[in-house]
Design a protein around this nucleic acid. Structure first.
Lengths: 115, 115
DNA sequence: TGACATATATCGGTTTCCGATATATAATCA
DNA sequence: TGATTATATATCGGAAACCGATATATGTCA
């Protein structure tokens, strides 16, 4: 594909990083928020999210810290690093390019234009 | 994900099937046309396309026939079956849903709305 | 002769994502 | 009290997508 293959379908990484743009969040919270913000379209699974977060941490695109909640297990919060924020911008641009290209193929049949 | 996982990133299957909507095509031709219709964004590789086509054939979403060209190796043309055309419509709808959901997440930060 | 474009094909590998499973805490309910 | 459910994190194994490399075969052009 050559345009950032990791977008296809690394879209989950993009979306998770986007959630962190609004402020630090912990894993379980991201699952809920992604569901909400996508109008119940994305049901991100724990088995997908946690390895993904660990991977972002390794690449230093996010940092993590633990904090006890009023009840339950302590929560592991994630924060976008500067490099993470820069990577996010790139990923958003790549997504736009990709989505637009799909749109071109889906709309532009031989039926409608010689262009 | 629950919305047709094979869209993420089965987008290639969607795009290839879409190309066939305009008429029968052979593999190499699809690679060239996808490049053209996407304004040089998608560089579909032979190693991706041919297994994908064989898979569509197995599922009876396309049929194939061979035809000699004026020169060179004979070409293997593919044609959308009725089931294939129906599957294409579904895949296009799924793509729309998916792309819109990504759009919602990318646009709707906590920064801009309580909605 | 060799390089290149056309054309199809397969194998092995990486990355994505998920299902299943495990662990731990607290609330609710029968 | 015991069972279930929700919260919260984690890992493992597997399926599927896509690609790089490679192989094959034909024809043209220098």
């Amino acid at each position: 594909m050559e345009l950032d293959k990791s977008l296809l379908s690394g879209s989950m990484t993009l979306l998770v990083m986007k959630l962190l743009e609004d402020g630090d969040k912990y894993g379980y919270q991201m699952i809920e928020e992604l569901k909400r913000r996508s109008d119940d379209t994305f049901h991100l699974k724990a088995g997908t999210l946690y390895p993904l977060l660990h991977n972002l941490e390794e690449k230093e695109l996010v940092t993590a810290y633990e904090r006890k909640a009023a009840a339950g297990k302590p929560r592991r919060y994630y924060r976008l690093t500067k490099r993470g924020a820069a990577a996010l911008v790139e990923k958003e641009t790549a997504w736009d390019t990709y989505a637009q290209a799909v749109g071109k193929v889906l709309k532009g049949g031989a039926c409608c234009a010689g262009a």
